[in-house]
Design a protein around this nucleic acid. Structure first.
Lengths: 348, 348
DNA sequence: TCTGGCACTCTCCTATGATGAGTGCCAGTA
DNA sequence: TACTGGCACTCATCATAGGAGAGTGCCAGA
């Protein structure tokens, strides 16, 4: 490997060993330990010099004089970016993952079980956003009259998802009128994508307003509402194993723990972070304060988007202390995203 | 008040003061403090004698020699059962509760906001089970054909609740057949209670099997499935403010906290406890190990069933450390149950 | 360029003793 | 008989001090 910045190969190797070791047992690593561990045949004194350099570069830090060194966020970043060689999981590990999630029947359950699985094998908190199906195909809509001018709208998308919503309308429609509206919509839009439906709806409402009778208008309006409000659970995620975070050394402080758990409950900010990785390709890693969000200061977030039908449908990942086994966790998140994508792909 | 058991009035009074005081500041109460607080004009030495009696009765205990005394579970129980005089909330407190939950629009949101409210004002964890509507009136069913012999069943109950479920059938039914089945069911059952529908279904399936064509049978089967599986979310609850429990003195032990949180996630055992109070009338109180469920050993659970249409529909309450302000919490739970019942009552 | 040596620093653990809160018991008093 | 003051005793808590251990930085020498 060529030198990276001012860091020669020996320094890099020592950094890697130090971080490996620190991840393993969580205590600051001293020069003596490092010289023993690194198999470089160097005395602790020499190691000390190198460590001083690494500290100058901000890659490691000492909690106090005469403790060993601990990786900084910058150190982890360097480690993850250039030091870490990811060995893919061997096939029977993949198989065992595969099996653990092939039980799922419905979508909701599948998401939950993936989240459980992630938290189970990494001993961190697992998180999976609900899949967003941009390319939802409109399949069928039904309007059922209830009392008091209320109409129940049932919308079937993509042969799998069912949404219902109750609307209050201005006037009372007869069952026949509603049937007529539904028929029109189904004939016009069946099989089209959600985006197409919305566009076409808007266009027709502007262009051809006059040619539509009142019922059509109402149908349009209703369908429009469904389209608008009906970002199903795109703004939601399933979290599992938060209890794994209780008692993590880095989070021993009660107040920090409470903040973190409250963030999980509020969901908003966590979603914001997950959203960012939605746009990225492959595994994304936020280390400590990189997330830019306080309660996650001492946490790392490893995410990967998952795809359905070639489109990014959601994000999954794990949240845990900065001191986590990146080497193991990253491939797991990666594979899990692919497996979930495959499991969600319609009948493939 | 008459003597209760071997406990004279003075001893009772002292016990009450001790518990009040302990609830307030959480530190063991000594004889000196008690003599000052109780306004009985007794010397600490006398108090000590009484305290020794109370300890013999198992109502209070000393964490160690020469610490003050702390109430035991038995002590709390006695306190709650016979010492506590509940003053109902004054009307503007009730009003403010009323307002906080009148925002809710849909049922799901209402439940969540009640749970939030409970945890917010008590600083404990609030919990509300989803309402169960035993007397659901069958309003409308619709069968929509999907691909692959799958049929989407949409069931509207009670003008409010909508359920859908996808079934796979043995043979492919035409839209017309499905329509016919739905029509039959709607005509036959509309307006009837869930229980009636089930009974009648079973009867007709036995008696008159022959007279029904295959489609009817299938419809029955489907409806039966819906009836069976369709205990909507009766087995679910909404929890809020678990983070309030982080850092509670009694739960300082990380492992106990983790256990408790895991219990919340598993839901099953918590539901079992809530279920018990479903059958009880009015506010129920489980103190410490009385719940019979380990993770709740150091917790108290205060619950009250809430009614819709004169029927018990669900349970709400709070969960917190045994050392909680019963005097304040009990009326709050009580009133909240009534307010929620009122809010859920159809158009009243 | 590496190494051994040395003085120094800091944490962690243990022992120690003082303090204060609280107790139980007992003898005395109204 | 019911209360009280007094006394010896027990613990938790806190601050203090000292030693052991781990680790450091720096320097002089190979």
């Amino acid at each position: 490997m060529a030198n990276v910045g001012p860091l020669n190969e020996r320094a890099q190797h020592l950094l890697r060993v130090l971080i490996d070791r620190y991840i393993e047992d969580g205590k600051p690593i001293g020069s003596r330990t490092l010289s023993r561990e690194a198999r470089l045949d160097l005395s602790p004194a020499t190691i000390r010099n190198v460590m001083a350099d690494l500290e100058d570069l901000g890659l490691i830090a000492a909690p106090h004089t005469s403790a060993g060194r601990v990786p900084t966020v910058k150190g982890y970043r360097f480690f993850v970016d250039t030091l870490l060689s990811l060995k893919p999981l061997d096939s029977h590990e993949v198989d065992s993952l595969q099996q653990r999630l092939s039980v799922g029947n419905n979508e909701q359950g599948l998401i939950a079980s993936v989240s459980d699985m992630l938290s189970g094998i990494t001993h961190l908190a697992g998180v999976v956003t609900m899949p967003r199906r941009e390319a939802n195909a409109w399949q069928h809509v039904e309007f059922l009259p209830l009392s008091d001018n209320r109409v129940l709208t049932v919308l079937v998308l993509n042969d799998q998802q069912v949404q219902n919503k109750i609307f209050t309308t201005d006037k009372a429609y007869s069952p026949a009128e509603l049937q007529q509206a539904a028929n029109y919509l189904n004939q016009t839009f069946s099989g089209k994508s959600f985006q197409q439906v919305r566009d076409q709806l808007l266009r027709e409402m502007q262009d051809a307003k006059i040619r539509m009778d009142q019922m059509m208008l109402a149908a349009m309006e209703m369908a429009g509402k469904v389209c608008d409000e009906d970002k199903p659970y795109e703004e939601d995620y399933v979290l599992a194993g938060q209890t794994n975070l209780i008692g993590m050394a880095a989070l021993s402080d009660m107040d920090r723990l409470r903040e973190l758990f409250e963030a999980f409950n509020a969901k908003r900010d966590i979603l914001h972070i997950l959203d960012q990785s939605q746009r990225a390709e492959g595994v994304q890693i936020f280390i400590g304060e990189e997330s830019g969000y306080r309660p996650l200061d001492e946490c790392s977030v490893i995410t990967s988007p998952y795809q359905v039908d070639g489109q990014v449908a959601g994000v999954l990942g794990v949240i845990g202390p900065t001191r986590m086994a990146y080497e193991r966790v990253i491939p797991i998140v990666d594979i899990t995203a692919k497996l979930l994508g495959a499991a969600l792909n319609p009948r493939s």
